[in-house]
């Protein structure tokens, strides 16, 4: 094999391999998509976070605006404290915005949905969301349903 053509083939091999790595990181994983690096954090306390995890999405009207940064347990008021990292693009949510934990689909993962209120004051970094709705626990719902049936 000629020396020059060997080098050309090796060069082409490198190009294809790097293209494959590029494809994997850009198209298959979410590098080019929404990634919050610079954002501001707001907090919310839930009675029960259910299956919510760190990195779970935070969305408004179905549009992803941030992700869950941390989940911890607050020993003062005995509630779960969730820190949300919101992209700087979305920096004008009203102060009386409410947060709920929903499930995408019947068996899907859980996410936080924000619903903007009507206040003129704006949520700032470190603020606390006051209106919250905990995760729906299927077992509790079934239990309540059975109790209400038993009363009849």
């Amino acid at each position: 094999m000629h020396k020059k053509s060997v080098e050309i083939w090796v060069g082409l091999f490198m190009v294809v391999a790097i293209a494959a790595l590029f494809f994997l990181s850009m198209q298959v994983s979410s590098l080019n998509k929404f990634s919050v690096d610079s954002g501001y954090t707001i907090e919310a306390s839930f009675e029960n976070v259910g299956g919510l995890k760190v990195r779970s999405p935070v969305s408004v009207s179905g549009v992803k605006v941030g992700r869950v940064e941390a989940i911890s347990y607050d020993m003062e008021n005995f509630e779960a404290r969730v820190t949300l990292l919101i992209d700087n693009k979305y920096d004008a949510f009203p102060e009386d915005t409410s947060a709920s934990i929903f499930t995408s689909g019947l068996l899907g993962e859980q996410y936080i949905s924000l619903e903007p209120g009507g206040s003129d004051e704006v949520l700032k970094s470190g603020d606390q969301i006051k209106l919250v709705q905990s995760a729906v626990i299927l077992e509790q719902l079934i239990g309540q349903f059975l109790f209400s049936k038993a009363d009849e």
Binding site: A17, A19, A20, L21, F23, Q27, V28
Partner: peptide
């Protein structure tokens, strides 16, 4: 590693 990256990308 280069071949493995090609394998995964083509597999997808």
């Amino acid at each position: 590693p280069l071949l493995a990256a090609i394998f995964s990308a083509i597999g997808v």
